[in-house]
Simulated assay, not measured.
Amino acid sequence: MPQSSISVLLSHYIHVVMHDHNKFGEVVGEVKEMGFNLESSNFVFALNALCGKNSKSIWKRSRGVYMRWGWSENDVLSAFRKNPEFMIMSEKKIMRVMEFLVNKMGWPSGMIAKYPWVMRHSLEKRIIPRCLVVKVLWLKGLIDENLSLGYVVQPDEKLFVERFVTKYQNEVPQLWNVYQGKVEIEDV
């Protein structure tokens, strides 16, 4: 394991190494079996997700929630490899984000499995404002409906505003107000 990963482990996740030696070795083995590279920082995040208090029950609960949304076992494992920490979120948060992205926005559940780090963002501060702007642009026919979720949620605020708000300000003058939550999309 690289020094940088050990530093992260010791400075942020000391509880992980405080486990019984046998339990810790068992979890390290599980993480390796799941396909994580020991050289990757995601290895440390996976250890944290599987070594925390009640981690096995949290893992099973989260797995079940995602599978209710149509994810396969492979979807769950693939998403976990990309962003292990999305599995230790509360069931309430998972359900709220999935409900919004799938039922309100119309994104297929499988797309969320491709971008699991999206689940870690604030629903109110990042996901909803950005998605509402995108929905307005879809409804106006100004952007492609096949836009990836990552392209919408990943960029920093400045880049998002340039791509989706400023660029279309002339066609949709109320877009900035939609982004700030001052105007409902039905009023645009």
Rank of each mutant, 00 (worst) to 15 (best):
V97I: 14
K82F: 01
V172Y: 13
V188L: 13
M67Y: 14
E91W: 04
S11Y: 05
R130I: 04
G181R: 09
S11T: 02
Y66H: 13
G110K: 14
E39T: 02
K32D: 15
F100E: 01
M119S: 01
I58T: 02
L38K: 04
N37F: 02
V76R: 12
N103Q: 08
I6G: 15
S78F: 01
I14C: 05
V161E: 11
V134H: 11
S109K: 10
V161F: 06
E39G: 09
D187G: 07
M18L: 11
E162S: 06
E85H: 03
F45L: 15
H15A: 03
K82H: 02
N37K: 13
V16G: 00
K140Y: 08
N83D: 13
E157M: 12
D20G: 15
M34K: 13
W176E: 03
H121Q: 10
F86A: 10
G25C: 02
Y115H: 09
V44P: 05
V188G: 08
F100H: 05
L38E: 08
M111H: 06
P108K: 00
V133D: 11
V118Y: 13
G106C: 14
N170I: 06
I143F: 03
R163K: 14
D20K: 09
N146F: 15
R68V: 04
P108F: 02
S72L: 00
E99Q: 08
M67I: 14
I6Y: 14
R126C: 10
L123W: 10
G64Q: 12
K32N: 14
W138L: 09
L10P: 05
K82M: 04
I127T: 09
S4W: 08
C131G: 08
V133S: 11
V161L: 10
S7F: 06
I58S: 04
W71D: 12
E145M: 12
R126Y: 11
E184L: 07
V183A: 01
G25K: 00
E124K: 11
N54L: 13
L159T: 05
P2M: 03
A79M: 03
I6N: 12
S90F: 02
P116Q: 00
F164Q: 12
G150K: 02
R68D: 10
N42S: 15
D144R: 09
L10K: 11
N42C: 15
K167A: 09
Q174N: 10
F43M: 12
G35E: 06
F100A: 02
N22C: 06
L137A: 05
S11I: 00
E33L: 05
V76Q: 05
E184S: 06
R63H: 10
I185P: 13
V44C: 06
V152K: 08
L77G: 03
V136Y: 07
N177K: 10
S57P: 11
K140N: 04
L132F: 14
M87Y: 04
Y179S: 00
P129C: 08
P2H: 07
I112Y: 09
N22G: 02
L139W: 03
H15W: 03
R163V: 06
A79K: 01
M87V: 05
I14Y: 10
V172H: 13
K92T: 15
M95Q: 01
E184I: 01
L139S: 04
R130V: 07
L147T: 04
Y151W: 11
Y151A: 10
I185W: 00
